[in-house]
Amino acid sequence: MKEEALARPEWTAADTVNSYVSGFLAACRVIARNRLALFGVVIVGTWLLTALLAPYIATHDAYEINIANRLKGPSSDHWLGTDYLGRDTFSRLVFGARTAFQVAIGAVFLGAFFGIPLGAISGFSGRWVDSAIMRVMDSIMAFPGRLLAIALVASMGGGLFSLYIALGINSIPSYARIVRGVVLAQKEKEYVEAARMTGESDFNILFLQVLPNCLSPLLIRLSLDFGHAILAESSLSFLGLGLPPPTASWGLMLKEVTPFLQLQPMAAFFPGLTISLIILGFNLLGDGLRDVFDPRQYER
């Protein structure tokens, strides 16, 4: 059905937008019917709101230390206890959501921004351009991402920007491969030939007609990637390679209390639970999207 629509030679940018919008709405409807996916949306949405409204939700100043009150268990004043500097764990988790989303949005954007065009060019041009790009992608995948992360963090003294790049670069290949795959499949189709005949430029064919077909696998990828980015950020921070202290970052919170595990195991319990929960949310959402877009699963 979609193909017929696309085959019209007078296809315009507005139509592309329309197809995106209607596709999105259809997706929403299916997700609303899938209970697990809805659960994912709720989790992700809750954390997103928490991140946006962090100062209003936090019960304490996430950065105010209180040495006399360090490593305490949950209490009525500190709902989830305090960390090794006596800071309120709950408030730091709330502000940690901000950090997590900031990093994830930046990293995912960067990966998609470079990965999608590279994949499209690779698939569309074929031959040596294709193999050159794909070999670069292979190299990125074979290269230990940790080194890159350390290199960037070391040279910039940590901070959001270095994490964007470190995490972003690592996800470029996955976007490039998805888009390349779809482009390769669509390239031979009739509507592309038809557009060529009408003298449409390669650029327009590629970005206005072929790329919309990548939408579904890309959305799935994006959702999963958000989860990956949050996990990667916390892993790097846990290794001490992410954001510098005293940033409220979930991974860093875990790292900071690790030496005190035997004294106060609770301090390590909640940050980990939070990370698990949000990644679960993104994965459920991703699964839901797969149900929407993957006809094989959809029919089942």
Partner: peptide, 15 residues
Amino acid sequence: NRGEVAEIEGATIQA
């Protein structure tokens, strides 16, 4: 310096 008490001292001085 990373990985030393400087992280704790630093956070305290910052506060």
